[in-house]
């Protein structure tokens, strides 16, 4: 469905600012997790595995073990999914052991995050 031009422009204007800022935040958190995400344990797995976890952070960027929640997964065997989750949990635990470095004044924006980890290319692609 097409929206009237004026309204669409106003809507886009209203959304454009925060989107860029969010991207910065996302990239900042991503950059702090990636170095610790090691999938050596799944090195011989060629299956596509998709894993969605949620992460709740405290104002100082730290978290507890219960703040990482395995929400959903696709692909791979049950054993591979568990192994994948362990790589994800280990990555967050290792690189976030001293708390993630994110701007305190924007805590409301990063207190909760949804992280999707993808191993290997999706078959249909």
């Amino acid at each position: 469905m097409r929206l009237p031009a004026l309204s669409a422009a106003l809507m886009l204007a209203a959304w454009s600012g925060p989107a860029l800022a969010d991207e910065d935040l996302s990239e900042a958190l991503k950059a702090q997790i990636v170095p610790c995400w090691n999938v050596a344990a799944l090195a011989d797995v060629s299956d596509y595995i998709w894993m969605f976890v949620s992460l709740d952070l405290k104002p100082d960027g730290t978290f507890g073990a219960d703040d990482i929640i395995w929400q959903e997964n696709r692909g791979g065997t049950e054993g591979e999914a568990i192994a994948m989750y362990l790589t994800v949990e280990r990555a967050i635990m290792r690189c976030g052991r001293d708390g993630f470095d994110l701007p305190a004044e924007r805590y409301d924006e990063w207190r909760a995050s949804n992280l999707v980890f993808v191993l290997n290319e999706e078959p249909s692609k």
Binding site: P18, K30, S54, T87, D108, A112, S113, F117
Partner: peptide, 14 residues
């Protein structure tokens, strides 16, 4: 803006 951040990671280390 207060919805969860969404991040996709697809370039793991081995």
């Amino acid at each position: 803006a207060q919805e969860p951040l969404r991040i996709e990671l697809d370039n793991p280390n081995i």
